[in-house]
Structure formats: C-alpha cells, structure tokens
Simulated scan of single mutants.
Amino acid sequence: MRLTHFRQLMDEEFGGVRAASISRDHVFGGLGGRTVEQALEDGDEPRDVWRVVCAEFEVPTERR
C-alpha cells in the first residue's frame, strides 16, 4: 500500500479533520506507543499501520 492510498483510506473512514487528528495525536499500543505519524516517519509500512488503526477503531472488515 502506498502512503497516498493510506491517507485516502484514513480520510474516507474518519473524515479529513478527524483522520489528521488521529494520525497526529492518538498513541497506539500496536505501534509501540507511537502515533501514526511517528510510525510512518520511522519507516513502518502504511499497510501495517492501517491494520493497527483498523483494529483500534474497530473498522468493519469490509472497509479494511
């Protein structure tokens, strides 16, 4: 998954403003206590980050 696709999925699922807030502010245990932005900056694959976001926010399987 490319980063642009990841951003699109975040916006579609949460809306642009909330997606940005989640990415910057929400600390995920599944990302080692980092935010989405920190994980991506550290080189984590967007696909893996998306899976953690989906699990944390209980995104339905058909939208994962």
Results as ranks from 00 to 15, higher is better:
Ser23Gln: 06
Ser21Pro: 09
Gly16Asn: 08
Leu40Lys: 02
Val17Lys: 07
Gly30Ile: 05
Gln38Val: 00
Leu40Arg: 04
Ile22Ala: 06
Gln38Arg: 00
Ala39Trp: 11
Ser23Leu: 04
Val27Asp: 08
Glu12Asp: 09
Gly15Val: 04
Ala39Leu: 15
Phe28Val: 06
Gly33Val: 14
Glu37Lys: 06
Thr35Glu: 05
Glu13Val: 00
Leu40Ala: 03
Ala19Cys: 05
Phe14Ile: 14
Asp25Tyr: 10
Val36Arg: 07
Val36Gln: 03
Leu31Val: 05
Asp42His: 13
Leu31Asp: 00
Glu12Gln: 04
Val36Ile: 12
Glu12Ile: 07
Val17Asn: 07
Gly16Ile: 10
Glu41His: 10
Gly32Lys: 12
Ser23Val: 08
Ser23Gly: 13
Arg34Leu: 04
Gly43Tyr: 08
Ile22Thr: 07
Thr35Trp: 06
Ser21Trp: 15
Glu41Asn: 14
Gln38Trp: 00
Glu41Arg: 14
Ser23Ile: 07
Val17Phe: 10
Gln38Leu: 00
Val36His: 04
Val27Asn: 10
Asp25Asn: 15
Glu12Pro: 02
Asp42Gly: 02
Arg24Ile: 10
Phe14Arg: 12
Leu40Asp: 09
Asp25Ser: 13
Ala19Asp: 07
Arg34Ser: 07
Asp42Leu: 09
Phe28Lys: 04
Ser21Gly: 15
Arg34Pro: 01
Phe28Ala: 03
Ser23Ala: 13
Gly15Lys: 02
Ala20Trp: 11
Asp25Trp: 09
Arg34Met: 05
Val27Cys: 11
Asp25Glu: 15
